[in-house]
Amino acid sequence: MKLTKDQVKKVARLANLPLTSDEEDLPEGEAGKYSEQLSRVLEYIDQLNQVDTTGVEPTFNVSGESNIMREDTTVASLSQEEALSNAPQKKEGMFVTKGVFEE
C-alpha cells in the first residue's frame, strides 16, 4: 500500500518525530519525501499477502526460553549524581522538561 503525506504526518505525530519543513506550502518537505520512500517499502512488503499463513502461529521470540524470573532481592541503585549524569537539564535532584499539563 501507499502511505500518503497525511498518513506520514499522522504517523510522525504518533511517533513523536518532528518533521522539518512541514509547512503545507512546501510540497517537497520531509513528509513528501517519506511518503514516497515509505510507500515503496510498503509496496515491497505487500508481497507478504501472497503467503498463506492460515493456522500458523506467530513467532515473537526465538530464544526458546520461558519463565525466566529472578528472586525478589535488591542491589544498589545508581547514585543520584550518576542517574542525572547525562541529563541536559537538572534541578533539585530531578530531571527537567518543559512544562506538561498536569493530568
Binding site: I45, L48, N49, V51, T53, V56, E57, P58, T59, F60
Partner: peptide
C-alpha cells in the same frame, strides 16, 4: 502487518 510478518517468521 505485524502479526502477519510474525507468522511468516514461523514459516
Amino acid at each position: 502487518y505485524f502479526a502477519k510478518a510474525a507468522r511468516v517468521r514461523t514459516l
